[in-house]
């Protein structure tokens, strides 16, 4: 078994950061998210590998909030593409949890399967190595297991690290992972260490059968009730590791310009605003319902798994205290037989 002693962690990160842009979970001032290790400031930043997770998910590494796509010149009706900004440089996400790794697996489904390949995503994804960090102590809002995610065996990982006290157990899972193992060389040692057992979850979501049941609940009065206090602020979708909606917009000056994509959210009315003035999701009930149906029903119909990996971030950040675990359980328990 290979292990990385915690006392050699910084050295290992420096080593990995030599050949790739390395992202690590940090608490930085008021912020909590994944940032480049090269920007780490000892003293003011705090490495969050010993914490449960960070608030802003690592999705931005493979799917940035704002991403330039191409630049152009347009003269009259003729448009010439000048440059395409695919971004193939090597990147490593170090220390993400199983929920976040599973969310990237959802992105892979969306951007790389079903007959369409998003080349911008592919360029980033192909060149990203994932070092996932197994979880043994779920936090106050975690419910990954209920959503089909095993916190101790992260999917999509090139390497899995396991916290065994003084050391991390280092398990390479792919050829990309082997490269990191090779790069670390003698920083890794051969030694036995034991991972702890998984502690119980505090949140209990019962998702079984929910996707099926939702098929008949589009017009159910439950949505009115569940959405009553939602402020359609969109925070939940921005902090969610698995939300991937984006808009394509343009910046231009004279004949020059570029197109970029940026995160969007189904919680916004502008998201479904149509050119003719109609908005099929004009009110918060319709927008709220869409978010949950996409997460809990539509995605599962198309890809065989929910678009929620149980990370609990939306529970933490929602100003109205809306809790997806309660929503799942409410749907599960709702008596739809008495309704029209």
């Amino acid at each position: 078994m290979q292990i990385l002693s915690k006392s050699k962690l910084e050295e290992a990160l420096n080593q990995l950061g030599k050949n790739a842009e390395l992202f690590v979970p940090l608490a930085r001032g008021e912020e909590s998210g994944f940032y480049p290790w090269s920007s780490y400031q000892a003293g003011s930043d705090r490495l969050m590998l010993d914490a449960l997770n960070v608030l802003l998910p690592p999705k931005s590494v493979v799917f940035p909030q704002t991403e330039r796509m191409y630049s152009f010149t347009s003269t009259g009706p003729a448009v010439e593409i000048k440059e395409t900004f695919e971004s193939p440089q090597p990147r490593i996400i170090f220390g993400l949890r199983a929920c976040d790794a599973a969310a990237i697996a959802c992105f892979d489904d969306v951007f790389l399967t079903m007959g369409f390949i998003d080349s911008f995503y592919q360029a980033r994804r192909d060149n990203t190595t994932i070092v996932a960090h197994a979880c043994y102590e779920p936090g106050a809002n975690c419910f990954c297991e209920a959503m089909g995610v095993d916190p101790t065996e992260p999917v999509n990982a090139d390497v899995i690290i396991r916290d065994a006290g003084e050391v991390y157990i280092w398990e390479s899972k792919s050829s990309k992972g082997e490269k990191l193992t090779a790069a670390l060389g003698s920083l890794l040692e051969n030694k036995e260490a034991a991972a702890p057992g998984l502690k119980p979850f505090q949140q209990q979501a019962n998702y079984e059968g929910v996707a099926e049941k939702l098929k008949g609940m589009f017009e159910d009065p439950i949505w009115e009730q569940l959405a009553a206090t939602c402020q359609t602020c969109g925070i939940c979708t921005y902090v969610c590791p698995s939300c991937y909606c984006f808009d394509i917009q343009v910046k231009s000056w004279g004949e020059e310009g570029y197109r970029f994509r940026c995160y969007d959210s189904c919680m916004y009315s502008e998201y479904t605003q149509m050119a003719g003035g109609h908005n099929p999701r004009g009110n918060e009930r319709e927008r709220f319902r869409n978010r949950f149906l996409h997460k809990l029903q539509f995605f599962s119909e198309r890809y065989g798994k929910p678009l929620c990996t149980g990370c609990g971030r939306c529970i933490v950040a929602c100003p109205a205290g809306i809790n997806i675990v309660e929503i799942i359980n409410n749907i599960k328990e709702a008596d739809t037989s008495v309704r029209a």
Partner: peptide, 13 residues
């Protein structure tokens, strides 16, 4: 409450 939830989330020091 948001501060309290954050304090208990494990997402911050």
């Amino acid at each position: 409450p948001l501060q309290a939830v954050k304090d208990n989330s494990g997402f911050f020091p």
